[in-house]
């Protein structure tokens, strides 16, 4: 269980409490500057709140050792940086750093992650030669190779075209189906509406709505939080936003 209890960080979060469930895809939505990335970073144990705490299985995330946290929570930052031109396989292998289980187990975990993301044919290709979509998958493979129980990703779909967005979302849904807790910061409300199990809406550092997508992203919430009069069209699972 990953939870936040009354997280406060001056100017960014003003008392956010929530409990996340494994096996679900949770989307964090909200206008620019609402505190989405800060909340995700707190839940990943990377940012310390001024008061309150992020809890993993009832224990505060800030407590050492950091490697135990790193094995439980995989974090995909917004800036997809890879400083050196390593191969896809080596990149995924970096996800094994918190584990000290030996080469055989590392190789098996990397192999499983590359297989899950259809990256085996590209295993030896340098990262610099990948397309945007392949690169996003390779970075996700890095997280999956660490076999975390939680996957926290900050706008993982931002730089992808629609087809690759849908493909990556399908991979993330598969992770949740396998029992992983998946938490995504998403800007695209239609993607959150159609693909998340649960949506958290942040507004000025507080939780404005929390629930299934059609409730948390209802038209009154859109008007109140985003200040946009918009309507949802289409069937559930295929909704589109008309502004």
């Amino acid at each position: 269980m990953l939870a936040a209890e009354n997280l406060v960080l001056s100017g960014r979060l003003h008392g956010v409490s929530l409990r996340l469930r494994p096996g679900e895809v949770t989307a964090i939505c909200g206008p620019n500057g609402a505190g989405k990335s800060t909340l995700l970073s707190c839940l990943a144990g990377l940012t310390l709140p001024q008061s309150g705490a992020a809890l993993l299985d009832g224990a505060a995330l800030a407590a050492p050792p950091a490697e135990a946290r790193a094995r439980a929570i995989g974090y995909l930052p917004q800036v997809a940086e890879v400083a050196w031109d390593v191969s896809v396989q080596t990149l995924a292998g970096l996800g094994r750093l918190p584990w000290r289980t030996g080469a055989a187990e590392d190789a098996a975990a990397v192999d499983a992650a590359l297989t899950a993301l259809d990256l085996l044919p590209l295993a030896y290709r340098p990262v610099a030669q990948l397309s945007g979509g392949e690169r996003a998958r390779a970075l996700l493979a890095r997280v999956l190779a660490g076999t975390p129980r939680w996957l926290l990703a900050d706008e993982p779909l931002a730089s992808l075209d629609l087809a690759h967005q849908l493909a990556l979302l399908a991979h993330l849904r598969a992770c949740a189906a396998a029992g992983m807790g998946v938490v995504l910061v998403l800007h695209d409300l239609a993607l959150a509406m159609n693909h998340a199990d649960r949506v958290l809406v942040l507004d000025h550092g507080t939780l404005a709505a929390d629930g299934p997508p059609d409730l948390a992203l209802s038209e009154p919430v859109l008007a109140q939080v985003w200040g946009v009069n918009a309507r949802w069209l289409g069937e559930p699972g295929q909704r589109a936003l008309q502004v």
């Binding site: 990943a44 144990g45 790193a70 929570i73 974090y75 930052p77 800036v79 400083a83 050196w84 390593v86």
Partner: peptide, 20 residues
């Protein structure tokens, strides 16, 4: 070396991998 490897992914990701 291990810490430097983790830094390949940037500071935030490196810390999420347990880097001090």
């Amino acid at each position: 070396g291990r810490g430097l490897d983790a830094l390949t992914l940037g500071e935030a990701a490196a810390r999420s991998l347990g880097l001090d």
